[in-house]
Amino acid sequence: VTLFVALYDYEARTEDDLSFHKGEKFQILNSSEGDWWEARSLTTGETGYIPSNYVAPV
C-alpha cells in the first residue's frame, strides 16, 4: 500500500471533499479520476476526495 502525506492544510469545498491538516497520512483508494483522488485518512478514518497536488508519497 502506497501512503501519501499532506503537504498543506486543506478545507473541504464540497461534501465529497475531505478536509485535512499538514502531516496527515492517507491511503489512496482511487487515483484514476485526474487531479482529485479518493482517499482514506489514516488519522480520522474518513473517506473523500483530496487534491493530488496537496500530497506526496511517504
Rank of each mutant, 00 (worst) to 15 (best):
V1Q: 13
V1M: 14
V1A: 13
V1T: 14
T2K: 11
T2C: 11
T2N: 12
T2A: 11
T2W: 13
T2S: 13
L3Y: 13
L3I: 13
L3V: 14
L3C: 09
L3P: 05
L3T: 09
L3G: 04
F4P: 00
F4K: 02
F4A: 08
F4C: 07
F4E: 01
F4T: 04
F4N: 01
F4D: 00
F4V: 10
V5N: 02
V5Q: 08
V5T: 06
V5A: 05
V5S: 04
V5C: 06
A6W: 01
A6G: 04
A6L: 01
A6K: 00
A6R: 00
A6Y: 01
L7N: 03
L7T: 04
L7W: 03
L7D: 02
L7Y: 03
L7C: 07
L7V: 07
Y8K: 08
Y8E: 07
Y8Q: 08
Y8I: 07
D9E: 06
D9F: 04
D9Q: 05
D9G: 06
D9H: 07
Y10M: 03
Y10V: 02
Y10W: 09
Y10L: 03
Y10R: 04
Y10T: 01
Y10E: 00
Y10D: 00
E11G: 05
E11I: 14
E11N: 11
E11D: 11
E11W: 09
E11K: 12
A12M: 04
A12W: 02
A12P: 05
A12V: 02
A12T: 04
A12N: 05
A12L: 02
A12G: 11
R13Y: 09
R13G: 09
R13Q: 15
R13T: 13
R13M: 14
T14M: 11
T14F: 15
T14R: 15
T14G: 15
T14D: 12
T14I: 06
T14Y: 15
E15K: 13
E15R: 11
E15D: 13
E15C: 12
E15L: 12
E15T: 13
E15W: 10
D16T: 15
D16G: 15
D16N: 14
D16S: 15
D16Y: 15
D16A: 14
D16H: 15
D17C: 10
D17Q: 15
D17G: 15
D17N: 10
D17T: 15
L18E: 01
L18G: 01
S19M: 04
S19W: 03
S19N: 06
S19V: 03
S19P: 06
S19T: 10
F20T: 03
F20N: 00
F20P: 00
F20G: 00
F20V: 04
F20R: 00
F20S: 01
H21M: 12
H21S: 14
H21T: 14
H21E: 09
H21I: 12
H21N: 10
K22M: 08
K22F: 06
K22D: 02
K22I: 09
K22H: 06
K22G: 04
K22Y: 06
G23P: 00
G23V: 01
G23Y: 06
G23H: 05
G23T: 03
G23L: 03
G23C: 06
E24G: 02
E24S: 04
E24M: 06
E24C: 06
E24Q: 07
E24Y: 05
E24R: 01
K25P: 05
K25H: 12
K25D: 02
K25Y: 15
K25L: 15
K25F: 15
K25S: 06
K25C: 11
F26W: 01
F26Q: 00
F26Y: 01
F26K: 00
F26H: 00
F26M: 06
F26R: 00
Q27A: 10
Q27D: 07
Q27E: 12
Q27W: 15
Q27P: 00
Q27I: 15
Q27V: 15
Q27C: 12
I28S: 02
I28Q: 02
I28A: 03
I28C: 04
I28T: 02
I28N: 01
I28V: 10
L29N: 05
L29C: 07
L29F: 07
L29T: 07
L29K: 05
L29G: 04
L29P: 05
L29Q: 05
L29Y: 06
L29A: 05
L29I: 11
L29D: 05
L29E: 05
N30W: 09
N30L: 06
N30S: 12
N30F: 08
N30V: 07
N30I: 06
N30E: 07
N30Y: 07
N30G: 09
S31V: 11
S31I: 12
S31Q: 14
S31T: 13
S31A: 14
S31M: 15
S31Y: 12
S31W: 13
S32T: 13
S32L: 11
S32R: 10
S32F: 11
S32Y: 10
S32H: 11
S32W: 10
S32C: 10
E33G: 14
E33M: 14
E33C: 12
E33R: 15
G34H: 12
G34W: 13
G34Y: 10
D35G: 13
D35K: 12
D35Y: 15
D35C: 12
D35M: 13
D35L: 14
D35Q: 12
D35E: 13
W36S: 06
W36C: 07
W36P: 06
W37Y: 08
W37E: 01
W37S: 02
W37F: 08
W37N: 01
W37T: 03
W37A: 02
E38I: 15
E38N: 09
E38C: 15
E38P: 05
E38Q: 14
E38G: 05
E38L: 15
A39E: 00
A39R: 00
A39H: 00
A39N: 00
A39L: 01
R40S: 05
R40H: 07
R40A: 05
R40W: 08
R40C: 07
R40D: 01
R40M: 12
R40K: 12
R40F: 10
S41Q: 05
S41W: 01
S41L: 07
S41V: 06
S41G: 03
S41F: 03
S41C: 07
S41N: 11
L42T: 07
L42Y: 07
L42D: 04
L42N: 04
L42I: 10
L42A: 05
T43N: 10
T43E: 13
T43Y: 10
T43K: 12
T43C: 12
T43W: 14
T43Q: 09
T44Q: 03
T44I: 02
T44R: 04
T44G: 03
T44E: 02
G45L: 08
G45A: 05
G45R: 05
G45C: 10
G45D: 06
G45E: 05
E46Q: 15
E46D: 09
E46T: 08
E46L: 15
T47V: 14
T47C: 08
T47K: 12
T47Q: 11
T47H: 08
G48N: 01
G48I: 02
G48H: 02
G48M: 03
G48T: 01
Y49D: 03
Y49P: 02
Y49V: 08
Y49G: 04
I50R: 00
I50T: 01
I50C: 01
I50W: 00
I50F: 01
I50S: 00
I50G: 00
P51L: 08
P51C: 07
P51T: 02
P51I: 03
P51Y: 07
P51S: 05
S52G: 07
S52I: 07
S52A: 12
S52N: 06
N53R: 13
N53F: 09
N53D: 10
N53P: 06
N53C: 13
N53M: 11
N53E: 10
N53Q: 11
N53W: 14
Y54W: 07
Y54H: 08
Y54P: 01
V55T: 04
V55N: 01
V55I: 10
V55A: 04
V55C: 05
V55K: 01
A56W: 09
A56I: 14
A56C: 08
A56T: 11
A56E: 10
A56H: 09
A56D: 05
P57D: 04
P57E: 09
P57Y: 06
V58R: 04
V58M: 12
V58G: 05
V58N: 06
V58S: 07
